[in-house]
Design a protein around this nucleic acid. Sequence first.
DNA 1: CAACTGACGATAG
DNA 2: CCTATCGCCAGTT
Length: 104
Amino acid sequence: MVSSFSKRAIEIIKRVPFGKVATYGQIATYSGNSRGARQVVRLLNSSSEKENLPWYRIVNSKGNISLKHGNGYELQKSLLEKEKIEFGKNDKIDFNKYLWKPLG
DNA sequence: CAACTGACGATAG
DNA sequence: CCTATCGCCAGTT
């Protein structure tokens, strides 16, 4: 068995459906390591294009985009809005509506 | 092999 | 609420 955290994380990221978002911690947890959030970041940076990952569906635990303005932030936001995801007051995403749940 | 690096997260003040 | 700090892990330098 491979049991490689990275490979599993990639598979999981690919499973995040249209119109939903997931947190770094979520991906890490479902990949077998609840503390692997930072590895998820690495993967997004190193494999988002190769693996064709929906990197823009990954946000931080607060429901905000983690990128900096002028450095992808607006891009990610627009991509999410195209998936009908709404941003609240502080450009915050409502997890009750948009957080991805692997079961349903 | 040691140090550095991240789009994080939890905790403390 | 906000900043500061520490912990975590794997891939790079």
